[in-house]
């Protein structure tokens, strides 16, 4: 596993989080400890073990292709922080 310590500020930006300086310092040290702990996986010989993505056998689940009622616009918009008519009003995304 990589020796490099976690650049908390950089990763927080990837996750769309702003951190205060206090959080940055605290999380750097706490996450550093946690990464140090998980490094124990490095020493284990995993042989040819398959990566396990699901806890149970996975298979495709099919259903009939029939029309079903959906939630509808009013329900979908019921918790909108901001709306305009039948739409979510969002922060501008184009210049």
């Amino acid at each position: 596993m990589p020796e490099q310590t976690i650049d908390v500020k950089y990763v927080a930006n990837l996750a769309r989080l702003d951190l205060t300086e206090g959080e940055e310092a605290r999380f750097s040290s706490q996450l550093g400890n946690i990464l140090e702990y998980v490094r124990k996986l490095e020493s284990l010989d995993v042989g040819d073990a398959e990566p396990m993505a699901h806890a149970s056998p996975v298979y495709d689940v099919m259903r009939d292709d029939r029309r079903r009622p959906g939630a509808g616009a009013e329900k979908a918009l019921a918790n909108a922080p901001d709306r305009s008519a039948d739409q979510f009003r969002v922060t501008r995304v184009v210049e």
Partner: peptide, 30 residues
Amino acid sequence: VKRRIILGTYVLSSGYHDAYYVRAQKVRSL
């Protein structure tokens, strides 16, 4: 929640994904 989002983003990020996430999935099989 912030700590776990940051840790999760880190172990999935380019360059670390195989070392952490895929390895953990293999250990999960074991």
